[in-house]
Amino acid sequence: MNFRFDLIAEYAPFFLQGTLLTIGLSLAGILIGTVLGLFIGLGKIVQNKLIAFPFTLYITFFRGTPLLVQIFLVHFGLVPFLFGETNAILAGIVALSLNSAAYIAEIFRAGIQSIDRGQMEAARSLGMSNVQAMRHVILPQAFKRMIPPLGNEFIVLLKDSSLLAVITAPEIMYWGRAMAGQYYKVWEPYLTAAFIYLILTISLTFVLNRLERRLKTD
């Protein structure tokens, strides 16, 4: 087999662009997803079942259906409906955010509920309102515990963003497919893509491990 490094070199600028977009898409997805997820997670744990219901429904839908289906719904349905025309990058960010929000909501819920009940009771017994107790006592402790699973979610999201190639968002995998189509090659484009993803996930894991260790020693 004749592995054509020269073709990879030729495509390197595109892969670089794609890598930046992949990072951008997953970063946007995790950040927006975290904000939405906090809101949805809090919504799910309120006592009032009627208020909690739509949040539970949201989580069930986005965790129970394939991301690819969600991407199509957003790209061909939601985004054109809202903006009149579609846009792959915008649709990508929306789909990744909505999807990760569901998983992050569960991470928040678990994090909040893992805090000993006595903490809430102590805060309330001091006269703090529910919101004050959440904000100053429960959430700061819960956030610490949420960092490892949030990191995991980030890695999953980064890998799953490759699905956006099918709606032609020019991220890593899009350029892999473009290269494969142009040269009728399999190994060069897809191994390159795999290699880039691997570098990204390994670096991210490294950063997250360090962060975790730092937090543990505080």
């Binding site: 006595g118 903490q119 009771e121 102590a122 309330r124 017994s125 006269g127 703090m128 309102s129 006592v137």
Partner: peptide
């Protein structure tokens, strides 16, 4: 309720100090 609770202090068996 919050106003009422301010007037009543409570000490728990397991302390429930804020660890952070």
């Amino acid at each position: 309720i919050n106003k009422m609770r301010q007037e009543v202090g409570m000490v728990f068996q397991h302390f429930n100090l804020f660890p952070h």
